[in-house]
Amino acid sequence: MIEIRGDKKVLVTPVSAEDLADIKIGDIVWLDGDLMTCRDVAHRRLVEYGRELPYDIKGKAIFHAGPIVRKIEGTEDDYEMVSVGPTTSMRMEKFEYEFTKLTGVRVIVGKGGMGPNTERACKEFGAIHCVFPAGCAVVAATEVEKIAEHHWDELGMPETLWCCKVKEFGPLIVSIDAQGRNMFEENKVIFNERKEAAKQAIYPEVKFIK
């Protein structure tokens, strides 16, 4: 579902393919609902070893991140989010097509760009990849209302699947949209053109070896 709150476009889980149809690369969106941290080992377990995820993320969101959590005093097994920042999404690129196909995840959040596998997954299955601003771990942590469940704890704190309830989690910058367009790849072309022009401007100024 999509809700417009003031000037914010908020994706509320469960998200459908139709919800994502009008969202384009470079758009800024926010997220309400279910967001599960999920990174290297969890991707490998599902895609390479065929182990089903212990938490259903169909129509929901995942976050490429390894958080710092703290046990809530006086509880048996409840945790709170202290700090959670995105990790480099590209590490999950080789798994993401299969992962999206198998899970039905709709929103993938991380850092930096992803490649052709993820572009294909987003286009075929109706999903998007978004960037959460890196280095803003405290903002992200305060947008997590609570950790509802956690699974695969044996993987250690960073790799555990922390199933969070989030409220206006963002800003999320759409880097791959459901049409398969890739903002980082498109930017790279522009950056490289500008770089060549910048070099040509510098060369004549630095002929210090006469």
Partner: peptide
């Protein structure tokens, strides 16, 4: 002049 911008997003 390359214009990487904050977070490299322009």
């Amino acid at each position: 002049a390359i214009g990487l911008g904050p977070q490299g997003m322009g």
